[in-house]
């Protein structure tokens, strides 16, 4: 219980796709207060039954939606939609206007990632991460530690 209290943070997740819903489920299970935002209401079906956070159906590029999510009280914002530009805009608004202390954005395009790193936005690029892992696997002579692809 002590651990739970200690790690409890207010986390806003934007995008309830495969990544977003997975993150929201994990973070909620770990005892954080989670708010998840998605434009499409049906995506909330991917949340696990024990997800105890809030769901907001709306477009995160609209200020009203971010205000509804009480973004100014958030400790962390994670932008995971499938559109790079949405993630970058939401991340910047969260950092510069709502002053969220920790902001993370998924960005698929590695070139865009570089530019926003300069602006102080923390980004994670699945393309670069996957490429690194593939290259490592190739360097190891094709031996994989886990998983198998055909």
């Amino acid at each position: 219980m002590k651990n739970l209290m200690k790690s409890s943070r207010y986390i806003v997740v934007v995008g309830c796709g495969r990544l977003g819903s997975h993150l929201a489920n994990c973070l909620s299970r770990d005892g954080n207060s989670v708010v998840i935002i998605d434009r499409v209401e049906r995506t909330f079906n991917d949340l696990s039954p024990d997800f105890s956070g809030f769901r907001i159906n709306g477009d995160a590029t609209h200020m009203a939606v971010l205000k509804e999510a009480k973004l100014k009280n958030a400790d962390v914002l994670i932008a995971t939609t499938h559109e790079d530009n949405v993630n970058l805009m939401v991340a910047q608004v969260a950092q510069k206007i709502f002053h969220v202390p920790h902001v993370l954005a998924r960005v698929f395009d590695p070139k865009r990632e570089e530019v926003y790193a300069q602006l102080g936005i923390d980004t994670i690029c699945p393309t670069s991460v996957a490429a690194d892992m593939f290259l490592q696997a190739v360097a190891n002579g094709g031996k994989r530690k886990n998983g198998a692809a055909s």
Partner: peptide, 27 residues
């Protein structure tokens, strides 16, 4: 799309140094 307009302008001015970048805010 506002998010596209924002990113286009930021990339143009940060990466290519375009002196004037103007975005339409639909909202």
């Amino acid at each position: 799309n506002d998010q596209d307009n924002l990113v286009v302008c930021q990339l143009a001015s940060l990466t290519f140094g375009v002196p004037r970048a103007i975005a339409l805010a639909n909202d």
